[in-house]
């Protein structure tokens, strides 16, 4: 059986690096609710591949800079 992988993200950091963009502004740019951005930042929701790419496009960085595998403990 395959081990469970944990996907982490840098969305919060990237928001602040992009002129302290608010969660609402980011949500509007990628077409989701603010609550979904909150859930992604808190690690409570792993977005679809499409939304992940949308986030990377907004931040103008490669996908792996937004989402990455958390190393196993």
């Amino acid at each position: 059986m395959m081990d469970k992988i944990t996907i982490d993200n840098n969305v919060r950091r990237l928001r602040f690096n992009n002129g302290e963009m608010t969660q609402q502004q980011l949500a509007e740019q990628v077409g989701v609710t603010r609550q979904t951005i909150v859930a992604i930042e808190q690690g409570k929701y792993t977005p679809s591949l499409e939304l992940a790419f949308r986030l990377a496009v907004v931040f103008n960085v490669p996908l792996e800079e937004v989402f990455f595998l958390r190393p196993p403990p």
Binding site: V32, T33, R34, T36, A39, P47, E50
Partner: peptide
């Protein structure tokens, strides 16, 4: 009130 229903919803 959120006006859209997104993929998470």
């Amino acid at each position: 009130v959120p006006t859209i229903t997104d993929e998470r919803d």
